[in-house]
Design a protein around this nucleic acid. Structure first.
Lengths: 199, 199
DNA sequence: GTCTATAACGAGATAGAC
DNA sequence: GTCTATCTCGTTATAGAC
């Protein structure tokens, strides 16, 4: 069942609020944006913002939930699509690169930096995001290893963690330089050594 | 020439301010600590703080300057010490691990997350820190390659960047979990493949 | 659902005494 | 150098009208 709003492709206020807030968090951080910033971006009053999201903690929670769901769907699509482990990993790197091209940090990478200042509910959600990514990467690596397209020299989970952490760090540093190529080069290096065709 | 203060090992107010502020930034971030926080930690008034560092921008600058100098000295010591490239890299990883053990993020990794909210002088100093680290790693890798203890499959600089970014990201993620072992495991994975003795 | 108005608080920063 | 007192502004959040 689809509401009129969805059928017509219109976007509700709650969703536009999330769009604006998400961008602000990914560019400036959770502690460096205000309700006033979001309100101005969406062209509503701060009070209306509080109607949709009572406080910053609730808004932050909603941000992570939506972001994780979207990222999870993208990972699922990559996993289901035809292609080798190498293809899936290239697609995965592309997800991060797309974020970086907008001068944004991964939402949960940004929140990880601010971790010790976050409401506990947000902290837990950040860890869930990392756990989901780790699990996806582990599956891809194990399948690739079973298929013979990936060479693992230790537990798949360790390599999964290395890839996730490496990509987050590569975004962090490359974004400071405003240099997407820097990210792509580093991503290549992170994955080199995994494939049997590597030199 | 040594001042009485230095000879007696006493620590001046300016230095104690930097100690407190540095910790606060590494744990909470530049945008999540206040002059009041530092003043309380050092047991002086906010006004006294402003006497030593006129504004947050100047304090931030001083933090990066001192941190970079300290880190640079440690890197120099590692470079000068006897040992293989592998030894130097292990020592380098140890520098990051020591920071993480105090639940702190690398100062400049934290500031990289907040990059787009920083005063321009601080932004430049953050990039300098990264450049210094990159240069050191490149030298170590090239020397190791020349000595035959390191196997490079591309430009040393690319691998240097991968190691730096990877360690920053590993800190970011491991710190959220409060798990130093997670960092160490990831660091091992990042460097695996570099050494000729690797499986 | 959205608004204006305002409360309540903390931030960075300054003045001027000691 | 350090203090108390104060200023100004931005922040989150609420009240109540429309």
């Amino acid at each position: 069942m689809v509401t009129t709003r969805a059928r017509e492709g219109r976007v509700g206020t709650a969703s536009r609020i999330l769009d604006a807030a998400e961008k602000l968090v990914q560019v400036r951080g959770f502690n460096a944006f205000s309700y006033a910033d979001v309100a101005a971006e969406v062209s509503i009053s701060k009070a209306a913002l509080h109607y949709h999201y009572p406080g910053k903690a609730e808004l932050g929670e909603a941000l992570i939930t939506r972001y994780s769901a979207r990222f999870g769907q993208a990972m699922l699509a990559l996993f289901a699509a035809a292609g080798t482990a190498q293809d899936k990993l290239a697609g995965y790197v592309g997800l991060f690169a797309d974020v970086l091209r907008e001068e944004k940090m991964c939402l949960c990478g940004m929140l990880a930096a601010e971790y010790h200042t976050l409401p506990v509910a947000m902290q837990a959600s950040v860890l869930s995001f990392f756990a989901d990514n780790e699990a996806w990467l582990t599956q891809v690596l194990e399948r690739g290893s079973a298929e013979g397209s990936v060479r693992l020299t230790g537990p798949a989970r360790d390599t999964a963690l290395m890839i996730l952490s490496g990509l987050e760090g590569a975004m962090l540093v490359a974004r400071a330089y405003g240099d997407v190529d820097r990210f792509l080069t580093t991503a290549d290096r992170l994955l080199s050594g995994l494939y049997l065709s590597s030199p």
